[in-house]
Amino acid sequence: MHNNKRPRTIQIFLPTGDPAGIRIAEQTTSIIRLIEVPRSDIAEFLKLPEAKQVGLYFLVSGDSKEELYIGQSGDVGSRLMQHHKDEKKDWERALVLVSLTNNLTQTHVLYLESLSIEKAKSCQRYELLNGNSGQKPHTPIPLKADCDEIHEISSLLLATLGYPFFEPLTEHAATEIEQVFICNRTGVDAKGIYTNEGMVVLQGSSAPMTTKRKTEQRFFDKRDQLLAKGVIAIEAERFVFQRDYLFQTPSGASMFLLLATSNGWIDWKTDQGLTLKDYQGHSLESITQ
């Protein structure tokens, strides 16, 4: 769901030949290179010339890849080694942004760090571990224009590798363009938008804290995780979404709301009562006729 949609070619190089190892992504017409480094492969990364460059980096942690730290350095390899030795930081993968022509300056990366923190906060996909918003340096207009373009390309490369830090969850905050689906079984009052990533449950959706249906502890465990993160909050014996939140499947979203098993393709409906399954079916028929 990239904002500036047009066909692109992305090249991914595997320097060790292992698709789970270091991956280097580039857009074929750009000088920006993004290197994904598993923590176990830091030694391999330090052998690459890019490790000595000025760069912006992202540290991703958590099993569900939901925690993010953004930083920059004049010597990105040394900085990653410091993070590796720092016991306070728990991370699994680093994503390092450098320039093929080695022309990024400290001003570029300071501006990009600040811009990235701001954008990641507004997208709210990841819990940002940065204590502050970075130092936005005084940036001349031409350099700012370059940085904005670098940020756009880096967003695309990150999303291509599976890290959509800066991608809005839905196409438009005002949802009149996208079809809104409703889940309203057993006291649930929720709205969602089905995207190519899954079901986004919209801010303000709510459901009862208890259920009379036959259920399992795992549904309550997931609810408690999102309560701890502040994604949902308790109001008058209901849990209420404090922000839009992406579930990977329609059923994952409806089960979370109903606290029990559910088929999201049936339990999400348009306001006319058409199920998500039938709605998708009609869309497909109109194309194939």
Rank of each mutant, 00 (worst) to 15 (best):
P250S: 12
S286C: 05
I32Y: 10
D41K: 11
R125E: 04
I42P: 02
E66I: 00
L161Q: 07
D18R: 13
D271N: 15
T28V: 14
R33E: 11
D224K: 09
N103H: 07
A20D: 13
I153L: 09
Q82D: 14
L202K: 02
L68T: 08
V240G: 10
S251M: 13
L143V: 11
G74N: 13
I153D: 05
I266H: 11
L46T: 04
S206H: 01
M255P: 04
F247N: 02
G131T: 11
G192S: 07
L169V: 09
Q53R: 10
L14Q: 10
F45N: 03
S155Y: 03
A260D: 12
F256K: 08
L34Q: 08
G62C: 05
G162L: 10
R8N: 03
R39N: 07
K88S: 15
D148N: 10
F220Y: 15
I266D: 13
E237N: 15
F45W: 03
N102G: 08
L97N: 03
F256N: 08
S30A: 13
F13L: 12
H83M: 00
L246W: 00
N4M: 03
G134Y: 09
L226A: 04
G71D: 05
D221Q: 15
M209Q: 00
K136E: 15
G281L: 11
L68D: 09
Q203M: 10
E127P: 00
W268T: 03
S116C: 11
T28K: 01
Q272I: 07
L161D: 07
Y111C: 10
I35A: 05
F220W: 09
A174L: 14
Q242Y: 04
H151W: 03
G273E: 10
Y245K: 01
L97T: 09
T28M: 08
H151S: 12
G187N: 00
E127M: 12
A159T: 10
P137S: 12
L259H: 11
P19R: 07
R185F: 09
D267F: 08
A51N: 03
A51D: 05
A20H: 13
Y163F: 15
L227F: 06
D63K: 09
S61M: 04
G162Q: 09
P137H: 15
A20G: 12
D148V: 02
R39P: 04
S64Y: 11
S205W: 04
L46P: 00
L128Q: 01
Q272D: 15
G198A: 02
V231K: 01
G281A: 14
P7N: 09
E152W: 02
A190H: 06
L48F: 07
T275N: 03
